[in-house]
Design a protein around this nucleic acid. Structure first.
Lengths: 164, 164
DNA sequence: CTGCCTGCAAAGGATTTGCACTCAT
DNA sequence: ATGAGTGCAAATCCTTTGCAGGCAG
């Protein structure tokens, strides 16, 4: 899986490189989780741990649900994945954007990523450029000394469709 | 409990009035929940359902935890309570501000209330004037037709203390 | 009196953990 | 070969639900 001319996504490849660079092992479970999350990102889906588990099962039927949870945690600590807390339904995962440099410090704070808003009625998640929160970030820093992590939590409201 | 010259908080009194005006019953459980939430609001605490349950037990030892959950749901539907989803730890409750007029429509959307940010490290919750999100709200409405509910979810980041 | 609201107990879903074993390095 | 990762199963945590009885109106 290493010296082969692989046709896999460059993002997954870099993620694997980061794992190796950090002395982390590349296992079927981890590889599968990365492929699932990357695929979801490409189609702008937002997957929960549970759903990721289901899709991983299709690729690697022997991988246990508990392992998926542990993998998501591990990859997040490495900075390879990020997650967003949706008030109206759990936590969803993304491949970090940008991925950390080969050497991987723990817990990125202000990844470029994107911010999210979720509709309380239909649950739809909309992506928003993080710059939309720039002024809020400035206000929080100046007034409270609070450093906003733009993409870590979703704001709530009602989407166009649900407003009728 | 009705014709007595009660010295209770005017806010709790109005809340009870709203219950009655809507044909809802005023029970010891509901009264206790309202007192607990109101007290927390005064000291700017943010209480989870669980914690509210614990405090209610002190006032009314026979009130069951399940009843607290049902009460919180009922009072929220009445518009007497609001809740905020904290990504880093459940849901917390407030007395609605402003309280709905005696006639109580369901589910307030844009109460004045206040917005919240939470520190991912220490869990501290900071209150923020909702106007801080005004420009975000305008952007979301214009660009996406999305109606932001300013006070329904907390944003995440790191507070001054945890930044060192 | 009536039926809304409650207590109790049990179910439920999502995530975590202890342990022994396996396989990536 | 060595221990980081894993599978499995059981344990938690928080919240919800079904049911019968009790109290507010």
């Amino acid at each position: 899986m290493e010296a082969l001319p692989h046709s896999e996504s460059p993002r997954v490849a870099s993620a694997l490189a980061i794992l190796r660079a950090n002395g982390e092992r590349v296992t079927p479970a981890r590889y599968a989780v990365l492929r699932v999350v990357e695929a979801a990102d490409l189609s702008a889906e937002h997957l929960s741990a549970d759903t990721i588990g289901a899709r991983v099962s299709e690729l690697e039927p022997t991988v246990h649900r508990a392992t998926v949870y542990r993998t998501l945690t591990a990859l997040t600590e490495l900075g390879v994945l990020t997650h967003v807390h949706l008030a109206a339904a759990g936590t969803v995962y993304h491949l970090a954007d940008p991925l950390p440099e080969a050497a991987a410090p723990t817990s990125r704070t202000s990844v470029t990523d994107h911010a999210h808003v979720q509709c309380v009625e239909c649950g739809a998640v909309l992506d928003v450029p993080p710059s939309v929160l720039d002024e809020v970030a400035v206000w929080l820093r100046d007034a409270l000394g609070f450093e906003l992590d733009t993409s870590h939590a979703a704001l709530l409201g009602r989407c166009r469709d649900c407003l009728r």
